[in-house]
Design a protein around this nucleic acid. Structure first.
Length: 321
DNA sequence: GGGAGGTACCACTAAAGGTT
DNA sequence: AACCTTTAGTGGTACCTCCC
């Protein structure tokens, strides 16, 4: 990680100026306090792992704080959020700076530094020109600081509304393009599937006339498959809420018992422990489903958890017998 | 050769929805 | 209604490539 974090010390003030990619992440973090890693990565134009590494380094150095995302109202996992810790107290006098080193309320604590186009303020000057802090310390009264914060809150609300509108317009545009593309794809797939089906029917019919039982049987299989393919291809064009044969989730097949397969795999290798993903790959099933199955098997005593992080399971001893 | 950055893959969780 | 599977979204890590 090319993270030359330079801390300029003038008196008690400490300015944090990482360089390179870390600098981009730091800028993005300041611009979007309380944002997720994904949002910060996007804002910084770096990959998520890179942003993660930088943010982790910031946190370890005491320049950022991570807040667990918790759960949304509907129970879904929310991403962790990150906020900068900006410490640049100039003195211990009774003056107030517009930033604080208290990480609990990053939205307020980082107001001045978080918004590049914020109104001109003494606080910004103080932050932007730390070298001057000793010579001409621009102090701000408490009332002045409060006034700046109020102005900034108004400006931020306006900016957020504008951003939200722009984002909504962009999303609508993208959705339109995606729908057009999906429609074209569906037409092409359906056309192809129908052509294949027509070919299968013709071939099978010819086999019937020529009394070729093998070809006829084979042709029937092709017709069955072709019919399914046509249905599958055309399905995506159906309005999701009015789908005739399925849900909005599409072509889910009938449930296939998974746990017997998992147990069989475990008992086949009694001395080995597997992760859900490993078993999922062998069985050709989803890792989520296998993980759930393994949990259930562990509860029922058919499998046992032998290690965590990642969770590894093996056949229970009774199963081996 | 070492570090930085990116890609690919993994683990985990819970909602959604089909089947019995 | 309960069970079961799929899917989507999240963060993390290993490995590879590139550059100094």
């Amino acid at each position: 990680m090319a993270m030359k974090m330079t801390s300029e010390t003038s008196g008690a003030s400490v300015e944090f100026h990482p360089e390179g990619t870390a600098g981009k992440v730091w800028t993005a973090l300041k611009a979007t306090p309380s944002a997720s890693i994904a949002a910060i990565a996007e804002a910084a134009c770096v990959s998520r792992p890179t942003a993660t590494k930088a943010l982790t380094a910031f946190a370890e150095a005491g320049h950022a704080v991570r807040t667990p995302g918790g759960r949304s109202e509907d129970g879904r996992a929310l991403p962790d959020t990150w906020a900068p810790i900006i410490a640049h107290a100039k003195s211990q006098n009774d003056t107030v700076t517009t930033t604080t080193d208290t990480p609990t309320t990053p939205d307020e604590s980082t107001v001045a530094s978080a918004v590049p186009d914020a109104p001109e303020s003494a606080a910004q000057e103080a932050q932007a020109t730390p070298d001057r802090t000793n010579a001409q310390t621009p102090t701000i009264s408490l009332q002045e600081a409060m006034r700046i914060l109020e102005q900034e809150a108004d400006r931020r609300a306006l900016a957020e509304a504008q951003l939200a509108q722009a984002q909504a317009e962009e999303e609508a545009r993208r959705q339109q393009a995606a729908e057009a593309l999906a429609k074209a794809r569906t037409v092409e797939d359906t056309r192809r599937a129908l052509t294949d089906l027509l070919n299968a029917v013709t071939t099978t019919y010819a086999a019937l006339l020529s009394d070729d039982e093998t070809a006829f049987t084979k042709g029937l299989e092709a017709i069955y498959t072709g019919t399914a393919d046509v249905r599958k291809a055309a399905r995506t064009s159906q309005p999701k809420t009015t789908s005739t044969w399925g849900s909005s989730r599409g072509d889910r097949s009938a449930p296939r018992p998974l746990r017997p397969d998992v147990v069989a795999h475990l008992t086949k290798h009694p001395d080995l422990a597997f992760t859900a993903n490993e078993i999922a790959k062998v069985l050709g099933r989803s890792s989520g489903a296998v993980a759930n199955a393994l949990d259930t098997l562990a509860r029922t005593g058919e499998a046992e958890l032998v290690s965590e992080g990642p969770n590894r399971f093996r056949a229970a001893r009774s199963q081996e017998a």
